[in-house]
């Protein structure tokens, strides 16, 4: 913030404020190339390798690698404050808690759902479908 406002700043050599970290073009292009490669890999793997129930984990693993690439380079996490990174990561932690605890319950009562006869109660007509039926 100390630098002169009227000085024309060019792409090279001029001092930038301390919070300004441009990412190099090479890094951006390399990241993009890696992302495209992983996209192709995940499609090929999912469609041609018979992996059964591991498939989803492989797909999600590749997706996570891609997500990390985007976060680290495109979203500048490498240069960001640790606190901001912590905040963002905590979002995923709480989403995981939400998912984990909900799943741990719902997994159990599926037996009760399967055992019960299919629900026979009244089907409520959605509001947007009402005009058509009357």
């Amino acid at each position: 913030m100390a630098h002169d406002s009227h000085q024309q700043v060019s792409a090279e050599g001029t001092p930038l404020p301390s919070f300004n970290h441009p990412i190099s073009v090479t890094t951006l292009l390399a990241t993009f190339a890696a992302l495209v490669m992983f996209t192709i890999v995940t499609v090929v793997v999912a469609k041609s390798l018979p992996m059964g129930r591991f498939e989803i984990w492989v797909s999600l693993g590749i997706a996570t690698v891609k997500a990390l690439l985007v976060m680290l380079f495109f979203m500048h996490m490498l240069h960001d404050k640790p606190f901001n990174v912590l905040i963002f990561i905590s979002g995923f932690v709480f989403a995981a808690l939400f998912m984990g605890l909900t799943l741990s319950d719902s997994e159990h009562y599926q037996d009760d759902i399967r055992a019960a006869p299919s629900f026979e109660g009244a089907q409520t007509t959605p509001i947007l479908a009402r005009g058509a039926e009357e």
């Binding site: 990412i23 951006l28 985007v70 495109f74």
Partner: peptide, 9 residues
């Protein structure tokens, strides 16, 4: 996303 990151740069 690439062009967006480029725009920031």
């Amino acid at each position: 996303s690439l062009t967006m990151a480029w725009a920031v740069r």
